[in-house]
Amino acid sequence: MAGVAVSTTINGDNVEYLCQPDETLLDVLRDRLGLTGAKEGCGTGDCGACSIILDDRLVCSCLVLGAEAEGRRVETIEGMAHGDRLHPLQQKFLEHAALQCGICTPGFLIAAKDLLAKNPDPTEEEIRFGLAGNLCRCTGYDKIVRAVQDAASVMKGA
């Protein structure tokens, strides 16, 4: 099986890698590039823990082949903070304790970032449906929704 040479942009950096034709982008990120922030909770697009943004679209990286990233822009949780300055969503997740075990948190943050980019002033219902592709088993979602609401109001003010 011949490897596929891929040249892509991840969190603003040019990255080149070789991957197998059937290897998912999630596996490439985690196993080849050491970017383990995206998690594999199911591998079938049902939990959202591996969420990334691919050319401004929110996707599950487990449902994207590594080969497909050629020439595209990938954003992962590792690129969300600027240096030591957290993104407002990250800060609000901490302040609201919107995480318990934290395994779903990177996926939620990426999905919430995409949500606010497209809808800066979402209603509670829009947040709930916007984040319905991300499973959390610890929090009951209450504090996650509140953190996103709070972040949205901070980001609007900024």
């Binding site: 079938t44 697009g45 487990c62 994207v64």
Partner: peptide
């Protein structure tokens, strides 16, 4: 392969092992 949301799930489950993946995007 277009969206891949069915194909990759079937590959993950071992239900299909294609010899050729044709990405039409």
């Amino acid at each position: 392969l277009a969206g891949g949301s069915d194909l990759l799930v079937r590959m993950k489950g071992g239900f299909i092992e294609p010899d050729l993946i044709l990405d039409i995007k």
